[in-house]
Design a protein around this nucleic acid. Structure first.
Length: 498
RNA sequence: GGCGCAUUGGUGUAGUUGGUUAACACGCUGCCCUCUCAAGGCAGAGAUCACGGGUUCGAGUCCCGUAUGCGCUACCA
Protein backbone atom coordinates (compact mmCIF):
# COMPACT_ATOMS: atom_id res chain seq x y z
CA UNK A 1 0.00 0.00 0.00
CA UNK A 2 1.46 3.35 -0.97
CA UNK A 3 2.23 5.57 1.97
CA UNK A 4 0.03 8.62 2.44
CA UNK A 5 0.60 11.02 5.30
CA UNK A 6 -0.91 14.36 6.11
CA UNK A 7 -0.24 17.53 8.00
CA UNK A 8 -3.48 18.80 9.52
CA UNK A 9 -3.16 22.17 11.26
CA UNK A 10 -6.09 24.20 12.48
CA UNK A 11 -5.90 27.70 11.04
CA UNK A 12 -6.24 29.60 14.27
CA UNK A 13 -3.00 31.55 14.11
CA UNK A 14 0.51 31.63 12.75
CA UNK A 15 2.38 28.39 12.03
CA UNK A 16 3.87 27.30 15.33
CA UNK A 17 7.38 25.84 15.17
CA UNK A 18 6.11 22.67 16.83
CA UNK A 19 3.55 22.29 14.07
CA UNK A 20 6.19 23.10 11.49
CA UNK A 21 8.32 20.30 12.86
CA UNK A 22 5.38 17.90 12.66
CA UNK A 23 4.86 18.94 9.06
CA UNK A 24 8.54 18.45 8.34
CA UNK A 25 8.60 14.93 9.78
CA UNK A 26 5.52 13.96 7.80
CA UNK A 27 7.02 15.39 4.67
CA UNK A 28 10.39 13.73 5.23
CA UNK A 29 8.76 10.40 5.79
CA UNK A 30 6.64 10.69 2.67
CA UNK A 31 9.59 11.72 0.55
CA UNK A 32 11.80 9.04 2.06
CA UNK A 33 9.45 6.22 1.19
CA UNK A 34 8.15 7.77 -2.00
CA UNK A 35 4.66 8.37 -0.64
CA UNK A 36 2.31 11.33 -0.70
CA UNK A 37 2.31 14.26 1.66
CA UNK A 38 -1.12 15.85 1.97
CA UNK A 39 -2.32 19.03 3.57
CA UNK A 40 -5.61 19.30 5.40
CA UNK A 41 -6.84 22.46 7.03
CA UNK A 42 -8.91 21.68 10.10
CA UNK A 43 -11.17 24.67 10.03
CA UNK A 44 -14.18 23.24 11.83
CA UNK A 45 -13.91 25.82 14.58
CA UNK A 46 -15.34 28.57 12.43
CA UNK A 47 -15.14 31.20 15.13
CA UNK A 48 -11.41 30.93 15.47
CA UNK A 49 -10.37 29.91 11.98
CA UNK A 50 -9.21 32.59 9.59
CA UNK A 51 -8.24 32.65 5.98
CA UNK A 52 -5.24 34.71 6.84
CA UNK A 53 -4.00 31.99 9.09
CA UNK A 54 -4.48 29.40 6.37
CA UNK A 55 -2.46 31.56 4.05
CA UNK A 56 0.31 31.99 6.55
CA UNK A 57 0.48 28.24 7.14
CA UNK A 58 0.85 27.59 3.43
CA UNK A 59 3.46 30.31 3.14
CA UNK A 60 5.34 28.86 6.07
CA UNK A 61 5.43 25.40 4.53
CA UNK A 62 6.59 26.89 1.29
CA UNK A 63 9.30 28.80 3.06
CA UNK A 64 10.93 25.72 4.59
CA UNK A 65 10.50 23.91 1.31
CA UNK A 66 7.72 21.47 2.09
CA UNK A 67 5.64 20.88 -1.00
CA UNK A 68 2.38 19.00 -0.70
CA UNK A 69 0.74 16.61 -3.12
CA UNK A 70 -2.86 16.78 -4.29
CA UNK A 71 -5.36 19.51 -3.44
CA UNK A 72 -5.67 20.94 0.02
CA UNK A 73 -8.56 19.42 1.93
CA UNK A 74 -10.66 21.76 4.02
CA UNK A 75 -12.23 19.84 6.83
CA UNK A 76 -15.27 22.11 6.99
CA UNK A 77 -16.22 20.93 3.51
CA UNK A 78 -16.62 17.39 4.82
CA UNK A 79 -19.01 18.12 7.68
CA UNK A 80 -21.79 16.25 5.91
CA UNK A 81 -19.74 13.10 5.65
CA UNK A 82 -18.83 13.33 9.30
CA UNK A 83 -22.48 13.63 10.21
CA UNK A 84 -23.44 10.70 7.96
CA UNK A 85 -20.85 8.54 9.64
CA UNK A 86 -22.24 9.40 13.05
CA UNK A 87 -25.75 8.54 11.92
CA UNK A 88 -24.55 5.31 10.45
CA UNK A 89 -23.06 4.36 13.80
CA UNK A 90 -26.34 5.34 15.41
CA UNK A 91 -28.28 3.12 13.02
CA UNK A 92 -25.92 0.24 13.72
CA UNK A 93 -26.42 0.71 17.43
CA UNK A 94 -22.74 1.56 17.89
CA UNK A 95 -23.69 5.01 19.06
CA UNK A 96 -26.63 6.47 20.93
CA UNK A 97 -28.51 9.70 21.41
CA UNK A 98 -27.77 11.54 24.60
CA UNK A 99 -30.64 13.83 25.55
CA UNK A 100 -28.87 15.33 28.53
CA UNK A 101 -29.23 19.10 28.22
CA UNK A 102 -26.03 20.75 27.08
CA UNK A 103 -24.06 22.19 29.96
CA UNK A 104 -23.15 25.80 29.88
CA UNK A 105 -19.45 26.00 30.38
CA UNK A 106 -17.27 29.02 30.18
CA UNK A 107 -14.23 28.59 28.04
CA UNK A 108 -11.92 29.75 30.78
CA UNK A 109 -10.66 27.28 33.33
CA UNK A 110 -11.83 24.32 31.24
CA UNK A 111 -8.85 22.28 32.30
CA UNK A 112 -9.63 22.82 35.92
CA UNK A 113 -13.29 22.19 35.34
CA UNK A 114 -12.51 18.94 33.59
CA UNK A 115 -10.39 17.72 36.47
CA UNK A 116 -12.99 18.69 39.02
CA UNK A 117 -15.77 17.05 37.12
CA UNK A 118 -13.73 13.87 36.77
CA UNK A 119 -13.08 13.86 40.49
CA UNK A 120 -16.75 14.37 41.29
CA UNK A 121 -17.77 11.55 38.98
CA UNK A 122 -15.31 9.23 40.65
CA UNK A 123 -16.43 10.06 44.15
CA UNK A 124 -20.07 9.66 43.20
CA UNK A 125 -19.96 6.44 41.23
CA UNK A 126 -16.51 4.96 41.20
CA UNK A 127 -14.71 4.89 37.88
CA UNK A 128 -17.58 3.70 35.76
CA UNK A 129 -17.58 5.69 32.55
CA UNK A 130 -20.63 3.86 31.32
CA UNK A 131 -23.18 5.52 33.55
CA UNK A 132 -25.09 7.55 30.98
CA UNK A 133 -28.81 6.82 31.44
CA UNK A 134 -29.43 7.27 27.72
CA UNK A 135 -26.92 4.63 26.72
CA UNK A 136 -29.47 1.86 26.93
CA UNK A 137 -32.56 3.80 26.03
CA UNK A 138 -34.76 1.74 23.73
CA UNK A 139 -34.62 2.45 20.03
CA UNK A 140 -38.30 3.37 19.98
CA UNK A 141 -38.02 5.76 22.87
CA UNK A 142 -34.92 7.36 21.40
CA UNK A 143 -36.51 7.75 17.97
CA UNK A 144 -39.67 9.13 19.48
CA UNK A 145 -37.90 11.82 21.50
CA UNK A 146 -35.74 12.77 18.55
CA UNK A 147 -38.77 13.00 16.30
CA UNK A 148 -40.43 15.21 18.89
CA UNK A 149 -37.59 17.67 18.36
CA UNK A 150 -35.76 17.13 21.61
CA UNK A 151 -32.10 18.11 21.13
CA UNK A 152 -29.47 15.41 21.58
CA UNK A 153 -25.80 14.75 21.16
CA UNK A 154 -24.57 11.55 19.57
CA UNK A 155 -22.14 9.52 21.65
CA UNK A 156 -20.10 6.49 20.75
CA UNK A 157 -21.06 3.39 22.70
CA UNK A 158 -17.73 2.27 24.10
CA UNK A 159 -17.74 -1.44 25.03
CA UNK A 160 -17.90 -2.23 28.71
CA UNK A 161 -15.08 -4.69 28.85
CA UNK A 162 -11.83 -4.91 26.99
CA UNK A 163 -9.19 -2.49 25.85
CA UNK A 164 -7.81 -0.79 22.80
CA UNK A 165 -4.30 -1.49 21.66
CA UNK A 166 -2.08 -0.03 19.04
CA UNK A 167 1.58 -0.16 18.30
CA UNK A 168 3.00 3.34 18.17
CA UNK A 169 6.11 3.49 16.03
CA UNK A 170 7.77 5.86 18.48
CA UNK A 171 6.27 4.99 21.86
CA UNK A 172 5.71 1.28 21.42
CA UNK A 173 2.68 -0.73 22.42
CA UNK A 174 -0.11 1.38 23.87
CA UNK A 175 -2.97 -0.19 25.72
CA UNK A 176 -5.90 1.41 27.43
CA UNK A 177 -8.83 -0.17 29.17
CA UNK A 178 -12.27 0.77 27.84
CA UNK A 179 -13.20 1.66 31.38
CA UNK A 180 -10.87 4.63 31.07
CA UNK A 181 -12.57 5.92 27.98
CA UNK A 182 -15.81 7.79 28.22
CA UNK A 183 -18.54 7.57 25.61
CA UNK A 184 -17.16 10.34 23.49
CA UNK A 185 -19.46 12.81 21.80
CA UNK A 186 -19.45 12.45 18.03
CA UNK A 187 -22.02 15.09 17.17
CA UNK A 188 -22.94 18.13 19.20
CA UNK A 189 -26.58 18.85 19.85
CA UNK A 190 -26.47 21.50 17.11
CA UNK A 191 -25.41 18.71 14.80
CA UNK A 192 -21.78 19.67 14.30
CA UNK A 193 -19.18 16.92 14.32
CA UNK A 194 -16.42 16.92 16.90
CA UNK A 195 -12.71 16.68 16.38
CA UNK A 196 -12.11 12.98 16.97
CA UNK A 197 -14.84 11.99 14.53
CA UNK A 198 -13.81 14.47 11.86
CA UNK A 199 -10.17 13.48 11.99
CA UNK A 200 -10.91 9.81 11.66
CA UNK A 201 -13.40 10.21 8.82
CA UNK A 202 -11.08 12.52 6.92
CA UNK A 203 -8.09 10.28 7.42
CA UNK A 204 -10.09 7.33 6.12
CA UNK A 205 -11.41 9.41 3.24
CA UNK A 206 -7.92 10.60 2.31
CA UNK A 207 -6.49 7.10 2.57
CA UNK A 208 -3.98 8.07 5.23
CA UNK A 209 -1.70 5.16 6.07
CA UNK A 210 0.52 6.78 8.71
CA UNK A 211 -0.56 9.36 11.24
CA UNK A 212 2.45 11.31 12.43
CA UNK A 213 1.58 13.98 14.97
CA UNK A 214 2.41 15.45 18.36
CA UNK A 215 2.47 13.37 21.49
CA UNK A 216 -0.35 15.45 22.93
CA UNK A 217 -2.64 13.22 20.86
CA UNK A 218 -1.27 9.96 22.21
CA UNK A 219 -3.99 9.19 24.75
CA UNK A 220 -6.81 10.33 22.49
CA UNK A 221 -5.60 7.94 19.86
CA UNK A 222 -7.38 5.15 21.68
CA UNK A 223 -10.68 6.88 21.03
CA UNK A 224 -9.82 7.17 17.40
CA UNK A 225 -8.82 3.53 17.16
CA UNK A 226 -12.22 2.70 18.61
CA UNK A 227 -13.83 4.79 15.90
CA UNK A 228 -11.88 3.12 13.11
CA UNK A 229 -12.97 -0.23 14.45
CA UNK A 230 -16.60 0.80 14.80
CA UNK A 231 -16.57 2.07 11.25
CA UNK A 232 -14.97 -1.11 10.02
CA UNK A 233 -12.04 0.82 8.64
CA UNK A 234 -8.41 -0.09 8.50
CA UNK A 235 -6.48 1.43 11.41
CA UNK A 236 -3.48 3.43 10.21
CA UNK A 237 -0.01 3.27 11.71
CA UNK A 238 0.59 5.88 14.39
CA UNK A 239 3.82 7.68 15.19
CA UNK A 240 3.66 10.27 17.95
CA UNK A 241 6.33 12.89 18.25
CA UNK A 242 7.86 14.26 21.45
CA UNK A 243 6.82 17.80 22.19
CA UNK A 244 8.88 20.95 21.93
CA UNK A 245 8.95 22.83 25.22
CA UNK A 246 9.92 26.33 26.36
CA UNK A 247 13.10 26.83 28.46
CA UNK A 248 11.04 26.49 31.64
CA UNK A 249 9.79 23.11 30.38
CA UNK A 250 6.37 24.57 29.86
CA UNK A 251 4.34 24.57 26.72
CA UNK A 252 5.49 26.92 24.00
CA UNK A 253 2.78 29.48 23.49
CA UNK A 254 2.44 32.72 21.68
CA UNK A 255 0.74 34.37 24.60
CA UNK A 256 3.59 33.55 26.94
CA UNK A 257 6.59 33.43 24.66
CA UNK A 258 5.74 35.77 21.84
CA UNK A 259 7.03 35.67 18.33
CA UNK A 260 9.89 33.18 18.87
CA UNK A 261 7.41 30.36 18.47
CA UNK A 262 6.17 31.55 15.11
CA UNK A 263 7.82 30.19 12.01
CA UNK A 264 7.43 33.46 10.13
CA UNK A 265 9.60 35.15 12.72
CA UNK A 266 12.55 33.14 11.50
CA UNK A 267 11.90 34.15 7.94
CA UNK A 268 11.49 37.78 8.96
CA UNK A 269 14.59 37.80 11.09
CA UNK A 270 16.94 36.52 8.47
CA UNK A 271 17.02 32.77 8.65
CA UNK A 272 18.00 30.74 5.63
CA UNK A 273 15.11 28.28 5.13
CA UNK A 274 17.43 25.30 4.72
CA UNK A 275 19.15 26.14 7.99
CA UNK A 276 15.96 26.35 9.96
CA UNK A 277 14.63 23.21 8.38
CA UNK A 278 17.85 21.45 9.31
CA UNK A 279 17.63 22.70 12.88
CA UNK A 280 14.00 21.67 13.20
CA UNK A 281 14.78 18.19 11.92
CA UNK A 282 17.20 17.71 14.80
CA UNK A 283 14.57 18.44 17.43
CA UNK A 284 13.45 14.97 18.37
CA UNK A 285 15.19 13.11 15.61
CA UNK A 286 18.82 12.19 15.19
CA UNK A 287 20.52 11.11 12.01
CA UNK A 288 22.09 7.66 12.07
CA UNK A 289 25.48 8.84 10.91
CA UNK A 290 25.86 11.60 13.47
CA UNK A 291 26.41 14.22 10.81
CA UNK A 292 24.16 17.12 11.69
CA UNK A 293 24.42 19.50 8.78
CA UNK A 294 22.15 17.87 6.23
CA UNK A 295 20.84 19.11 2.94
CA UNK A 296 17.28 18.51 1.89
CA UNK A 297 18.25 15.40 -0.03
CA UNK A 298 20.37 14.09 2.79
CA UNK A 299 17.54 14.60 5.27
CA UNK A 300 15.21 12.69 3.02
CA UNK A 301 17.69 9.90 2.61
CA UNK A 302 18.58 9.59 6.30
CA UNK A 303 15.15 10.13 7.82
CA UNK A 304 13.31 7.31 9.50
CA UNK A 305 10.58 7.05 12.10
CA UNK A 306 12.85 4.77 14.09
CA UNK A 307 15.29 7.61 14.68
CA UNK A 308 12.73 9.65 16.59
CA UNK A 309 13.29 9.99 20.33
CA UNK A 310 10.71 9.88 23.09
CA UNK A 311 11.66 12.68 25.46
CA UNK A 312 10.32 16.16 24.97
CA UNK A 313 12.85 18.67 23.71
CA UNK A 314 13.51 22.10 25.13
CA UNK A 315 13.77 24.92 22.68
CA UNK A 316 16.06 27.56 24.12
CA UNK A 317 15.72 31.26 23.66
CA UNK A 318 16.11 34.49 25.53
CA UNK A 319 13.79 37.27 24.49
CA UNK A 320 15.79 39.87 26.42
CA UNK A 321 19.10 39.14 24.75
CA UNK A 322 19.19 40.47 21.19
CA UNK A 323 22.13 38.28 20.28
CA UNK A 324 20.58 35.09 21.62
CA UNK A 325 16.95 35.79 20.91
CA UNK A 326 16.48 32.21 19.76
CA UNK A 327 18.15 28.85 20.26
CA UNK A 328 21.95 29.01 20.14
CA UNK A 329 22.21 26.03 17.89
CA UNK A 330 19.67 27.42 15.46
CA UNK A 331 21.65 30.62 15.23
CA UNK A 332 24.90 28.75 14.83
CA UNK A 333 23.42 26.59 12.13
CA UNK A 334 22.13 29.60 10.27
CA UNK A 335 25.58 31.18 10.38
CA UNK A 336 27.07 27.92 9.20
CA UNK A 337 24.72 27.85 6.24
CA UNK A 338 25.34 31.49 5.41
CA UNK A 339 29.07 31.04 5.24
CA UNK A 340 29.21 27.66 3.55
CA UNK A 341 26.22 27.43 1.22
CA UNK A 342 26.76 27.87 -2.51
CA UNK A 343 27.14 31.57 -3.18
CA UNK A 344 24.66 31.39 -6.04
CA UNK A 345 21.95 30.35 -3.62
CA UNK A 346 22.83 32.98 -1.08
CA UNK A 347 22.96 35.91 -3.47
CA UNK A 348 19.21 36.09 -4.17
CA UNK A 349 18.52 36.09 -0.44
CA UNK A 350 20.95 38.93 0.10
CA UNK A 351 19.34 40.74 -2.79
CA UNK A 352 15.94 40.51 -1.12
CA UNK A 353 17.39 41.71 2.14
CA UNK A 354 19.13 44.69 0.55
CA UNK A 355 16.13 45.56 -1.50
CA UNK A 356 13.92 45.59 1.56
CA UNK A 357 16.29 48.13 3.05
CA UNK A 358 16.68 50.23 -0.07
CA UNK A 359 20.30 49.22 -0.45
CA UNK A 360 19.87 47.26 -3.64
CA UNK A 361 21.13 48.58 -6.93
CA UNK A 362 20.44 46.97 -10.28
CA UNK A 363 24.12 47.14 -11.22
CA UNK A 364 24.75 44.36 -8.72
CA UNK A 365 23.17 42.02 -11.24
CA UNK A 366 24.79 43.66 -14.18
CA UNK A 367 28.18 45.31 -14.47
CA UNK A 368 28.88 45.03 -10.74
CA UNK A 369 27.84 41.44 -10.57
CA UNK A 370 31.30 40.17 -9.80
CA UNK A 371 31.92 42.85 -7.22
CA UNK A 372 28.67 42.03 -5.50
CA UNK A 373 29.42 38.33 -5.33
CA UNK A 374 32.90 38.98 -4.03
CA UNK A 375 31.65 41.37 -1.38
CA UNK A 376 28.96 39.04 -0.16
CA UNK A 377 31.40 36.18 -0.11
CA UNK A 378 33.81 38.16 2.02
CA UNK A 379 31.41 39.58 4.56
CA UNK A 380 29.24 36.49 4.96
CA UNK A 381 32.02 34.78 6.88
CA UNK A 382 31.00 36.35 10.15
CA UNK A 383 27.28 36.90 9.79
CA UNK A 384 24.60 35.06 11.68
CA UNK A 385 21.48 36.06 9.81
CA UNK A 386 20.52 37.60 6.51
CA UNK A 387 19.69 40.76 8.44
CA UNK A 388 23.38 41.30 9.02
CA UNK A 389 23.91 42.07 5.34
CA UNK A 390 21.82 45.21 5.66
CA UNK A 391 22.84 45.92 9.24
CA UNK A 392 26.52 45.33 9.88
CA UNK A 393 27.06 45.16 6.14
CA UNK A 394 25.49 48.49 5.33
CA UNK A 395 28.75 50.35 4.73
CA UNK A 396 29.58 48.01 1.86
CA UNK A 397 26.48 49.01 -0.04
CA UNK A 398 25.93 52.61 0.93
CA UNK A 399 27.82 55.73 1.92
CA UNK A 400 25.12 56.45 4.42
CA UNK A 401 26.07 54.31 7.39
CA UNK A 402 26.36 54.82 11.13
CA UNK A 403 29.49 54.79 13.25
CA UNK A 404 29.30 52.51 16.22
CA UNK A 405 30.07 54.48 19.33
CA UNK A 406 32.20 51.79 20.87
CA UNK A 407 34.17 51.38 17.65
CA UNK A 408 34.87 55.11 17.41
CA UNK A 409 36.02 55.16 20.99
CA UNK A 410 38.21 52.11 20.65
CA UNK A 411 39.78 52.68 17.26
CA UNK A 412 39.72 56.44 16.71
CA UNK A 413 39.47 58.49 19.87
CA UNK A 414 42.02 56.52 21.82
CA UNK A 415 44.83 58.08 19.81
CA UNK A 416 44.27 61.77 18.96
CA UNK A 417 46.93 61.69 16.26
CA UNK A 418 44.68 59.50 14.16
CA UNK A 419 42.60 62.51 13.33
CA UNK A 420 45.56 63.78 11.34
CA UNK A 421 47.08 60.46 10.31
CA UNK A 422 44.05 58.88 8.69
CA UNK A 423 43.38 61.69 6.20
CA UNK A 424 47.12 61.66 5.45
CA UNK A 425 46.88 57.95 4.84
CA UNK A 426 44.05 58.78 2.48
CA UNK A 427 46.34 61.08 0.55
CA UNK A 428 48.97 58.42 0.39
CA UNK A 429 46.52 55.85 -0.92
CA UNK A 430 45.15 58.21 -3.51
CA UNK A 431 48.46 58.04 -5.30
CA UNK A 432 48.46 54.27 -5.55
CA UNK A 433 47.90 53.45 -9.18
CA UNK A 434 46.91 49.83 -9.19
CA UNK A 435 44.72 49.72 -6.14
CA UNK A 436 44.14 46.31 -4.59
CA UNK A 437 44.63 44.50 -1.31
CA UNK A 438 48.33 43.99 -1.82
CA UNK A 439 49.21 47.51 -2.96
CA UNK A 440 47.00 49.05 -0.32
CA UNK A 441 48.73 47.00 2.33
CA UNK A 442 52.16 47.95 1.06
CA UNK A 443 51.21 51.62 1.01
CA UNK A 444 49.70 51.54 4.47
CA UNK A 445 52.65 49.75 6.00
CA UNK A 446 55.09 52.10 4.35
CA UNK A 447 53.13 55.03 5.67
CA UNK A 448 53.11 53.57 9.17
CA UNK A 449 56.90 53.26 9.02
CA UNK A 450 57.27 56.79 7.78
CA UNK A 451 55.24 58.32 10.56
CA UNK A 452 56.51 55.90 13.15
CA UNK A 453 53.30 54.23 14.33
CA UNK A 454 52.25 50.61 14.42
CA UNK A 455 50.39 49.45 11.33
CA UNK A 456 47.67 48.01 13.54
CA UNK A 457 46.73 51.45 14.75
CA UNK A 458 46.08 52.63 11.21
CA UNK A 459 44.44 49.39 10.18
CA UNK A 460 41.92 49.45 12.97
CA UNK A 461 41.33 53.13 12.55
CA UNK A 462 40.75 52.63 8.87
CA UNK A 463 38.28 49.87 9.51
CA UNK A 464 36.17 52.12 11.63
CA UNK A 465 36.47 55.01 9.17
CA UNK A 466 35.45 52.85 6.23
CA UNK A 467 32.80 50.65 7.83
CA UNK A 468 31.80 52.36 11.05
CA UNK A 469 32.69 49.23 12.95
CA UNK A 470 35.45 47.74 15.04
CA UNK A 471 35.15 44.26 13.59
CA UNK A 472 35.02 42.91 10.11
CA UNK A 473 37.04 41.24 7.38
CA UNK A 474 40.69 41.87 6.63
CA UNK A 475 41.18 45.60 6.20
CA UNK A 476 43.05 45.25 2.95
CA UNK A 477 40.26 43.25 1.41
CA UNK A 478 37.92 46.03 2.41
CA UNK A 479 40.13 48.60 0.72
CA UNK A 480 40.06 46.61 -2.45
CA UNK A 481 36.31 46.09 -2.36
CA UNK A 482 35.44 49.69 -1.70
CA UNK A 483 38.00 50.88 -4.18
CA UNK A 484 40.47 53.72 -4.04
CA UNK A 485 38.17 56.66 -4.39
CA UNK A 486 35.69 55.54 -1.80
CA UNK A 487 38.42 54.47 0.62
CA UNK A 488 40.22 57.79 0.32
CA UNK A 489 37.05 59.75 0.71
CA UNK A 490 36.02 57.90 3.83
CA UNK A 491 39.48 58.22 5.37
CA UNK A 492 39.32 61.96 4.90
CA UNK A 493 35.79 62.25 6.20
CA UNK A 494 35.53 64.10 9.45
CA UNK A 495 32.17 62.63 10.39
CA UNK A 496 33.14 60.36 13.27
CA UNK A 497 35.23 63.09 14.88
CA UNK A 498 32.34 65.44 15.21
C1' G B 1 -8.25 13.09 41.25
C1' G B 2 -7.63 9.17 37.24
C1' C B 3 -4.89 7.39 33.13
C1' G B 4 -0.71 7.75 29.96
C1' C B 5 4.31 9.21 28.51
C1' A B 6 9.10 10.75 29.68
C1' U B 7 13.80 11.43 32.79
C1' U B 8 21.95 10.66 29.86
C1' G B 9 26.75 17.27 31.34
C1' G B 10 23.48 24.21 30.41
C1' U B 11 20.83 22.65 25.47
C1' G B 12 20.00 19.03 21.28
C1' U B 13 21.18 14.03 21.05
C1' A B 14 24.22 8.87 20.56
C1' G B 15 24.79 4.79 23.44
C1' U B 16 23.89 -2.03 19.30
C1' U B 17 21.15 -8.53 21.87
C1' G B 18 23.57 -5.57 29.82
C1' G B 19 30.66 -5.95 29.55
C1' U B 20 37.03 -1.75 29.99
C1' U B 21 38.26 5.58 31.45
C1' A B 22 29.64 7.34 28.90
C1' A B 23 30.29 9.50 22.59
C1' C B 24 28.90 13.70 19.14
C1' A B 25 27.02 18.76 18.13
C1' C B 26 25.80 23.69 20.17
C1' G B 27 27.21 26.73 24.20
C1' C B 28 31.26 27.86 27.82
C1' U B 29 36.97 28.56 29.20
C1' G B 30 42.07 28.94 27.55
C1' C B 31 45.89 28.81 23.79
C1' C B 32 47.47 29.20 18.55
C1' C B 33 46.56 32.04 14.15
C1' U B 34 46.12 37.53 13.58
C1' C B 35 45.12 44.24 11.63
C1' U B 36 39.86 43.54 14.73
C1' C B 37 35.94 40.08 15.12
C1' A B 38 34.57 35.64 13.35
C1' A B 39 36.05 31.11 11.02
C1' G B 40 39.74 27.34 11.59
C1' G B 41 43.34 24.38 14.64
C1' C B 42 44.60 22.65 19.58
C1' A B 43 43.54 21.96 24.69
C1' G B 44 39.98 22.06 28.65
C1' A B 45 35.85 22.55 32.25
C1' G B 46 31.15 20.38 32.72
C1' A B 47 27.15 13.81 33.74
C1' U B 48 27.51 10.13 41.02
C1' C B 49 23.36 8.37 33.27
C1' A B 50 16.39 11.80 38.37
C1' C B 51 16.30 9.04 43.19
C1' G B 52 15.81 4.26 45.98
C1' G B 53 15.72 -0.84 45.83
C1' G B 54 16.35 -5.44 43.15
C1' U B 55 18.11 -9.25 39.15
C1' U B 56 23.34 -10.24 37.59
C1' C B 57 30.17 -11.83 38.10
C1' G B 58 28.79 -7.07 35.85
C1' A B 59 23.25 -2.14 34.41
C1' G B 60 22.69 4.25 31.40
C1' U B 61 21.01 -0.41 29.27
C1' C B 62 16.35 -5.57 32.53
C1' C B 63 12.40 -5.49 36.91
C1' C B 64 9.80 -2.84 41.00
C1' G B 65 8.91 1.57 43.73
C1' U B 66 9.41 7.00 44.52
C1' A B 67 10.02 11.89 42.75
C1' U B 68 9.74 15.47 39.08
C1' G B 69 8.07 17.17 34.40
C1' C B 70 4.76 16.86 30.44
C1' G B 71 0.25 15.18 28.10
C1' C B 72 -4.82 13.55 28.03
C1' U B 73 -9.15 13.33 30.80
C1' A B 74 -14.56 19.18 26.78
C1' C B 75 -21.26 18.98 23.19
C1' C B 76 -12.14 22.57 22.06
C1' A B 77 -8.90 21.37 18.12
Amino acid sequence: MPVRVRFAPSPTGYLHIGAARTALFNWLYARHVGGKFLLRIEDTDLQRSTEESTRSIIEGLEWIGLDYDEDIVFQSANALKHRDAAYRLLAEDKAYRDFTPKEQRDDKDVKQGVAERARAVQIAEGVDQRSNPFRDLSREESDRRAAAGEPFAVRLKVPIEGSTKFEDVVYGLQERSYSEIEDLVLLRSEGNPLYNLSVVIDDIEMGITHVIRGQDHLTNTHKQVLLYESLGAHVPTFAHLPLILAPNKGKLSKRKHGEVVSLTTYRDRGFVPAAFRNFLALLGWSPPGGKEILSKDELIREFSLEGIGRANAIFNFNEHDPRRWTDDKALWMNAEYIRTMPLDELLPMVKDELRANKLWREEYEDEDREWFAKTVDLIRQRYFTLKDFSGQGRAYFSDDFDFEESAVKKNLLKDPSLRQLLPELGNRLSSVDVFNAETAEAALRAFADDVGVKAGLLINGSRTMLTGQAVGPSMFEIFELLGRDCSVERLKSGVPWN
